[in-house]
Design a protein around this nucleic acid. Structure first.
Length: 631
DNA sequence: CCAGGCTAAACAAG
DNA sequence: CTTGTTTAGCCTGG
């Protein structure tokens, strides 16, 4: 029911296009024929054009006008930061498909998909706009100043060479592991991307007076700042009721709960966590192209993986809870296994050894001593992915080194100078009832209902080549590195997407809730805390997500999560998290016997707990600071 | 299987 | 604020 089939508004016709600013600018400056708008034929042409476009882009970096409002001086600068993409745009989809056709031997794409979309076509044709037009479009208020700023820091066009140049040894930001999909990843699988080191001064060039209270700021360079790209106007910020440093004691829990200042800080922070449309577009083009290409390759050019199923887009991006930048993507690549016997490995019910029951299975070659070797299978998968992405001439992916115990093949590249990672996760899809360790999990009856629960439990489950500890350790004749961990990423995603007690929760005609907002804020908080204290490395966004899921099960009504009560809801969620940490106990949402906090150790759990408590009771200075730094 | 239609979320305008 | 548009992702009927 969810809203399917509701009436819709008409799509906007060409009239709108006139107003629209296509900014192809950045990405491509390909001379496109003059821009027509939306007719079908045009679209087709566009697609074709796009193909060319991408190639062309490859070679030419472009200047990209920025479209931020002129009032935000800071903003512009922030946008210009090399690591942040600004708005480039679009050529996307069209390019996606077509371009492959030409360049990649393996891929044949149907051009059909895009054709219906008028809008895309427009975009594609956007490049045809004259510079003057662009100028107008981009800077409505048109100060030349702003433009100038923008230009200085231009980043190269999307498929430019620069994109491929991520220095191999670049230190990566460890805090970056937001892993939604799989804890596996969470725990270190992601490539860390280099943190943009932006000194506050850079930001303040035009706003020197801004920083009023900076708590110990600048030693931290932060990604947070990055997140704060969209700065509010300075006046607004100043109004923001921040708490001066050192004043935290004044806030008791209770006052914090009701403090309108806190409310504003949270809302403003949330604003900054939004992903820009253009960034999303750019990244989506690259990611989708790659995803399709890899799947095609596996189907056509491999024996072992030709039974690959539709890839499962999972993780925070696809759950609409990604924050700041669309820079981490998780795609699970399922290999259907018809009949398998799984046997628990260890005692928490999360890990299993897998035995194929059928003789003719193409995966048979990975069997060792009667069980399917996760490490062997992953190595071959890895090689295939490697081989495959080499054939992608438009996008230069770097394949990250294999990390112990990690199920993902992590690819990294730059999109408009922003590092983007794609985790390609091999998994087995098992279409049989879930392992018995899950019987007491997924306690969503009171929240989403029993029917929904049954529906989920009828879905397959997945096994990923993830292990913990020493790979060579043996248990019952099975090497640790050859075990598989269960994954319910698909259900997590489904729940996040359909998270209301009422079916219409957050739909157009239903009441909204703040569950996702709370999740984003907590993710962000953890991220910031990890940046300031490396000993928090073992915590990941999966802990946060799990905490939210449990919280939803204890506060089940949509009215428990009213958007107007964001601050209250968020603080309750924090208290939940603090409690889990304090006790060192956080049950896997699906497998209650697995304690997700057994890894970090109680000591650091308690430190994190009190750190969070402190933030909560002092009105989130870490958020305010970040807001300040953005200016 | 895929074209078309729908959604959520970002964004723009009033 | 509300309302509408744009767009990536997703779902489904034919």
């Amino acid at each position: 029911m969810s809203g399917r089939g509701r009436s819709r508004k008409a799509k906007s016709p060409d009239a709108e296009h006139a107003k629209r600013k296509p900014r192809l600018d950045d990405i491509k400056e390909v001379p496109l024929p003059t821009r027509p708008d939306s007719t079908e034929e045009e679209q087709k042409k566009k697609k074709e054009e796009k193909k060319k476009t991408i190639n062309a882009e490859e070679k030419k970096p472009l200047e990209r006008p920025i479209r931020e409002k002129t009032t935000n001086h800071c903003t512009k600068k922030v946008n210009e930061h090399p690591h942040k993409s600004t708005d480039s745009t679009t050529a996307k989809t069209c390019a996606t498909k077509t371009n492959l056709t030409e360049k990649s031997p393996v891929v044949k794409r149907k051009a059909t998909k895009d054709s219906p979309k008028v809008t895309r076509a427009n975009k594609c044709s956007g490049g045809a706009k004259s510079q003057e037009q662009l100028a107008k479009d981009e800077t409505p208020t048109g100060t030349s100043k702003s433009k100038t700023c923008v230009k200085k820091a231009k980043s190269p066009g999307m498929f430019s060479e620069e994109m491929t140049k991520m220095p191999p040894d670049t230190p990566k930001d460890t805090t970056q592991d937001y892993v939604e999909t799989d804890k596996a990843k969470a725990c270190g699988a992601k490539p860390k991307r280099q943190v943009a080191k932006m000194q506050p001064e850079q930001c303040l060039e035009t706003e020197k007076e801004t920083p009023k209270y900076t708590r110990k700021t600048s030693e931290k360079t932060t990604e947070a700042k990055i997140c704060a790209r969209r700065a509010n106007s300075p006046e607004k910020l100043r109004k923001t009721p921040n708490m001066p440093p050192g004043k935290g004691e004044d806030f008791t829990k209770d006052t914090t709960e009701k403090n309108p200042a806190v409310d504003d800080i949270l809302k403003e922070t949330l604003e900054k966590l939004k992903i820009k449309k253009t960034d999303k577009s750019n990244a989506a083009l690259v990611i989708n192209t790659t995803k399709d290409y890899i799947i095609r390759h596996l189907k056509k050019n491999t024996e072992s993986f030709k039974e690959v199923q539709e890839p499962l887009p999972t993780g925070s991006y696809y759950e609409n809870v990604k924050i700041c930048n669309p820079d981490e993507f998780d795609i699970m690549v399922p290999i259907l296994v018809e009949r398998v016997e799984i046997k628990p490995f260890g005692d928490d019910g999360a890990f299993y050894s897998v035995a194929l029951k059928r003789d003719k299975n193409p995966l048979r070659k990975f069997q060792e001593n009667g069980h399917l070797s996760a490490s062997n299978m992953l190595s071959e998968f890895r090689e295939e992915v490697k081989k495959c992405v080499k054939g992608l001439t438009d996008i230069k992916w770097k394949v990250e080194k294999k990390k112990k115990g990690c199920p993902a093949v992590t690819l990294t590249t730059n999109v408009n100078s922003v590092p983007v990672s794609l985790d390609v996760v091999l998994c087995l899809m098992v279409k049989s009832s879930w392992p018995s360790f899950t019987n007491e999990g997924l306690k969503i009856e009171g929240w989403l209902g029993t029917k929904v629960k049954q529906e989920y439990k009828r879905k397959p489950y997945y096994l990923v080549p993830k292990y913990e500890g020493r790979g060579a350790a043996e248990n019952d004749g099975v090497l640790t590195k050859d075990v598989w961990r269960v994954s319910f990423s698909h259900v997590e995603k489904a729940i996040l997407k359909n998270h209301g007690s009422e079916k219409t929760c957050c739909e157009k005609h239903g009441a909204s809730c703040c569950r996702k907002s709370c999740l984003k804020l907590l993710k962000h908080l953890l991220h910031l805390l990890k940046e300031s204290n490396p000993s928090f490395d073992k915590f990941c966004s999966y802990h946060v997500k799990t905490t939210l899921l449990h919280a939803c099960c204890s506060r089940t009504r949509d009215s428990d999560w009213k958007p107007a009560d964001l601050s209250h809801c968020f603080q309750l969620l924090l208290k939940d998290f603090e409690n889990h940490l304090q006790n060192g106990q956080l049950q896997n949402f699906f497998i209650p016997s697995q304690n997700l906090l057994s890894g970090p150790g109680i000591k650091v759990c308690r430190i994190l707990s009190s750190t969070i408590k402190n933030e909560r009771q002092t009105g989130f200075p870490i958020f305010s600071e970040q807001l300040q730094n953005a200016h």
